[in-house]
Amino acid sequence: MRGRSSFTVVMVAALAAVLAFLVLPIVAIFADTGPGDLVDSLGSDVARDALWLSLKTSSMAIVVIVAVGTPAAYLLATREFRGKALVTTAIELPLVLPPAVAGIGLLAAFGPNGVFGSALEGAGIELVLQTAGVVVALTFVAAPFYIRQAQSAFAAVDPNLLDAARTLGASEARAFARVAIPAAGGGMLAGLALAWGRALGEFGATLMFAGSFQEITQTAPLAIFATFATDFPAALALSAVLVAVSAALLLAVKLLGRSSLLGGEVHG
């Protein structure tokens, strides 16, 4: 009993340390920002443009990620094929890539002198230093977060459920939409929240690939970086807003996941 209780003390102390360390900077942001500063900072063009651009570009990236990532994740989860482990690893790679490397990679691929540069130019598509470039950078860094989660959520769906749907007259596409997605809904939403959070916070790859121009490519994290040297309170206020937005996002997704509508039971 004694051994267990002293270990309990160790665990509780560790959790307290983790909590304090992780929460303190966030609390500090709000402690240093008066409500007045918050309102003032939202009044500035730089902050408003940056926030709006962040929401816009991250939403666009999420739409692309979910639309393309979901069927891709389903394929990875439900089919066996040669080289599947390699494909999975390739998709996970951006997770561990330093943002600077991601930025360089994007430039090397889609920049004016990049591999696809002339092809894009021929098609009249400009990415570098453009809003579209921000979306590309966000999609690149955030997609693996969603695809990984969606893949494991789909893999956990009882294959008999999909087979049952087929014998009940459903095409593979209908079984996917009506059975697999609701059953994997919780995991998909968790992945969506992670990916969106990652996209909202993206900094390095965006800066290198798209630059930091107000209204065009300066997302909220870039605006914070641009203002903190000259106007710390404004940077702080913008950070507070970003924390609030991210927390609201996480909360909304968690609540949505808990509602019976999408909280798919995985095993019958």
Partner: peptide, 9 residues
């Protein structure tokens, strides 16, 4: 199906 495979959602 053996475990009936009812759709839980």
């Amino acid at each position: 199906f053996q475990d009936y495979a009812l759709f839980g959602h």
